[in-house]
Simulated scan of single mutants.
Amino acid sequence: MPATCLVVMGVSGAGKSTIAAHLADELGWPMAEADEFHPEANIAKMSAGTPLTDADRMPWLEALRAWIDERGAAGESVIVTCSALKRTYRDVLRRAGSRVRFVHLRGSADTVGGRLSGRSGHFMPPALLESQFADLEPLDPDEDGVALDVTTSPEAITDTALDRLGLRSGGHTGAGHDTNASG
């Protein structure tokens, strides 16, 4: 059975790092932050308030996929945080040798914006949130994953993700797709 990669996705401020850390603790899988795979030029653009282009994102997504492949080749399941806003970005990740599954954290612009404005020490300025919502494409029915509302507690979101993905106890990969999950 191939290794699994859970991609915790959504706009900046949705809670990707928090939920990914909870999932990593529950499953005992290593976790990576996609932000760490950005080249310096991308970080400089975002820090300056300039949205990244698709061309800017491709090397970043390819580097992340290479990491997933490296871990998967060793038989290791992993969790990554990645905005993965567009289907084309998710398709790059889905080309990994591992089974790639998505946990889409969704919330309103008001909810997420409130979280983002209270965050410090991150290169993504709140002004870019509008462009992220404009780019966001929900999971399609053929994409393996769940969409969960961010207004519940991190523990509840984690529990719901594990249940709906069939990953409760033992870390098996489960089956199915549930984009209508509300948390």
Rank of each mutant, 00 (worst) to 15 (best):
V11Q: 00
I68D: 05
A66W: 10
H172T: 13
D25K: 15
T179G: 13
L116I: 07
E40A: 15
V146L: 01
E70R: 15
A109V: 11
A48M: 03
A181F: 04
G176A: 08
G13I: 06
G121W: 05
Q132N: 04
A20D: 03
S153M: 03
S131P: 01
G166N: 06
E155V: 13
P30R: 14
D159K: 15
E26D: 14
L128Y: 03
E76Q: 15
T50S: 06
T152M: 03
D54P: 01
L128S: 01
V78K: 11
T88G: 10
W29F: 14
V80D: 05
E33Y: 03
F133P: 04
F102N: 11
E143C: 09
F102W: 05
E40K: 15
P59L: 08
T18D: 04
G145M: 02
G97H: 05
S17F: 13
S182F: 08
F37G: 12
V112A: 11
L139H: 10
G166W: 01
L27F: 09
R90N: 10
F123C: 03
A41N: 02
M9R: 09
S17K: 09
A134K: 12
R87E: 03
G118W: 12
P51N: 05
G75C: 13
G75Q: 05
E33Q: 14
R101P: 05
E155Y: 08
S17H: 07
T158K: 14
H177G: 08
G49Q: 01
A127R: 14
G171N: 06
P126C: 08
A109T: 06
A66R: 15
N180K: 11
A63C: 03
Q132K: 02
L162M: 13
E143I: 07
P2C: 10
L128T: 02
S108R: 01
E26L: 03
P39M: 12
R90A: 10
R57T: 02
P51K: 09
S131W: 12
E36W: 01
T81M: 05
